[in-house]
């Protein structure tokens, strides 16, 4: 199953590492990643494309528990007729076709 996650982290020491550690431990692989620090420099916007066989809702809940995670959203990637664009980081949420 392919999963798309959008996270907003407090950009503190080790916050991105913690997210990636949870992703690995809970049985998912990162296939694409982008991280961007907005102007306020307090937070980090992270987009992850993940691949894994386990229940993705569990992963979302585990990420949501992290102290540094302010917000997490998840989308299951499925074929659609046209690309759906996120207004978060201008990344496609789901590819066309």
């Amino acid at each position: 199953m392919k999963v798309f996650m959008q996270l907003k982290l407090f950009n503190r020491e080790g916050s991105l590492e913690r997210v990636l550690g949870v992703v690995r431990l809970r049985g998912f692989q990162v296939t694409e990643m982008a991280a961007h620090q907005p102007g306020d420099s307090e937070t980090l916007d992270v987009t992850l494309k993940l691949n894994g066989q386990r229940e993705s809702e569990n992963l979302k809940q585990q990420l949501d528990k992290l102290y540094d995670v302010e917000h997490v959203e998840m989308f299951i990637m499925a074929p659609v007729k046209s690309a759906v664009m996120s207004n978060f980081s201008r990344q496609p949420l789901a590819a066309a076709g």
Binding site: E13, G14, E17, R18, G21, L25, L66, Y67, D68
Partner: peptide
């Protein structure tokens, strides 16, 4: 220690 304990704590702090 921040790295060593990352997966076995609720959270870890490293005051700079």
């Amino acid at each position: 220690m921040l790295g060593v304990t990352m997966s076995i704590v609720k959270h870890s702090f490293l005051p700079r």
